[in-house]
């Protein structure tokens, strides 16, 4: 699964990190970063992170 973080939108709320902290992490730059490409069985958590993102910065495909 491919996750895309739109760096023009992300403001580092960290809600994605709260959902899946081994996939997302907010860095010192105040933006979320992908720690690893998630396996297919993490789809549910990734979808939740995409849905909860307040700035609509996340998308997932594949």
């Amino acid at each position: 699964m491919k996750v895309h973080i739109d760096t023009t939108r992300c403001t580092g709320h960290g809600l994605c990190e709260a959902v899946a902290e081994d996939i997302f992490e907010v860095g010192d730059d105040g933006m979320a970063h992908l720690l690893a490409d998630p396996d297919a069985d993490r789809r549910g958590e990734v979808d939740q992170a995409v849905a909860e993102c307040p700035t609509r910065a996340l998308s997932a495909s594949g």
Binding site: T8, R9, C10, T11, G12, H13, G14, E17, A18, E21, E25, V26, G27, D28, D29, G30, M31, T55
Partner: peptide, 16 residues
């Protein structure tokens, strides 16, 4: 402006 300014403080309030 909001996007850039909020990032300055975001890292101090994350779950980790």
């Amino acid at each position: 402006r909001h996007t850039k300014m909020r990032r300055l403080v975001a890292a101090a309030f994350t779950p980790k």
